[in-house]
Design a protein around this nucleic acid. Structure first.
Length: 299
DNA sequence: CTCCAGGTTCCGG
DNA sequence: CCGGAACATGGA
């Protein structure tokens, strides 16, 4: 009688939004395709969402949670218009139309990105699922099962061997120590909302396994700091090939200063668009072939 | 088998 | 501040 996966769904208006792109662009790692949509854990509950044209269909009663999580209130047209007017950025903007930077729970975001260093996106997904299955609470949606991300207190009670069994390798030590610092209250994640970007970043940098790049990921994806600009291997490639072409000896510090100035108020969005576009087209050749327009680096 | 992946940490110039 | 090396694991 009831079709699994389609009972009690209600529509939420979602203009300028692409659910698939948003969930598959490498900002979040645990959503699984399910029927016409996606299944995952949103905060502490099982959650399902599917997109039909300009609207999102979600379980009745979760409309507001969905709107907030998927950041449907971000002014995407304004954000898009704020990007610098260069060719590479223009291609990324077209390629990523409808991609939004979602609002992930801070701890889940922090913990997941601690596991991300030197790992491919598919591996990060594997580790996230293993951690959820091992330590997380089980939730059901119709006849499907998902696992919530374990909180810091739960991981603080685990040990390095259990975490290594989830595939974390040397990252196990980092995640365990960070979980303990959060669980003990030594570092207050909630309080970060009251800090400006610089102070918030400095606080995150105190955590084991969190450097400049991961701190910026957490600020961007977990704290809605849309100016934060994580520089990973892909973005570094883009910056060097596109914006610093034929320039020798460009230091990390120089790249960081350039990206904060050049990409502006919504730099985090620009970064994610460039990241996804580069990752999906680099090997295909578009990217390099069309990156011949070097941009003058204005100080 | 070799290479590399959304880096961080530690160490010596 | 800057450059290098070690660090685990898995898929191509």
């Amino acid at each position: 009688m009831k079709r699994a996966g389609s009972e009690a769904l209600v529509a939420v208006p979602a203009p300028e939004f692409n659910l698939e792109l948003t969930l598959e662009c490498g900002q979040v790692f645990h959503w699984q395709r399910c029927g016409a949509g996606w299944l995952g854990a949103l905060h502490d509950r099982a959650f399902y969402a599917e997109q039909i044209g300009g609207s999102l269909r979600v379980p009745a009663g979760t409309e507001e949670i969905a709107q907030r999580y998927f950041a449907l209130d971000h002014p995407l047209a304004t954000i898009s218009a704020s990007f610098p007017r260069d060719a590479a950025m223009g291609r990324a903007r077209e390629f990523c139309r409808g991609m939004r930077i979602i609002r992930q729970p801070a701890w889940e975001c922090l913990a997941t990105f601690i596991t991300s260093s030197m790992k491919r996106v598919s591996h990060i997904t594997q580790m996230s699922q293993a951690i959820r299955r091992t330590f997380g609470e089980q939730r059901r949606w119709n006849d499907h099962v998902v696992f919530a991300y374990p909180n810091a207190a739960r991981l603080a009670r685990s040990n390095e061997d259990e975490l290594r069994a989830c595939g974390l390798g040397y990252r196990a030590k980092h995640l365990l120590r960070t979980a303990r610092m959060i669980a003990s209250g030594e570092i207050d994640l909630v309080g970060i909302d009251q800090l400006d970007d610089v102070a918030a970043r400095a606080l995150l940098l105190q955590l084991p396994g969190v450097g400049e790049k991961i701190a910026n990921c957490v600020l961007l994806f977990g704290f809605g700091r849309l100016r934060a600009f994580p520089i990973d291997v892909w973005i570094e490639r883009v910056l060097r090939e596109v914006y610093f072409q034929q320039k020798r000896k460009v230091t990390r510090k120089r790249l960081r200063e350039f990206s904060l100035n050049y990409f502006g108020e919504f730099g985090g969005y620009a970064q994610q668009y460039l990241f996804h576009h580069a990752r999906k087209t680099w090997s295909a050749g578009h990217f390099q072939a069309s990156s011949g327009t070097a941009i003058e680096t204005r100080a």
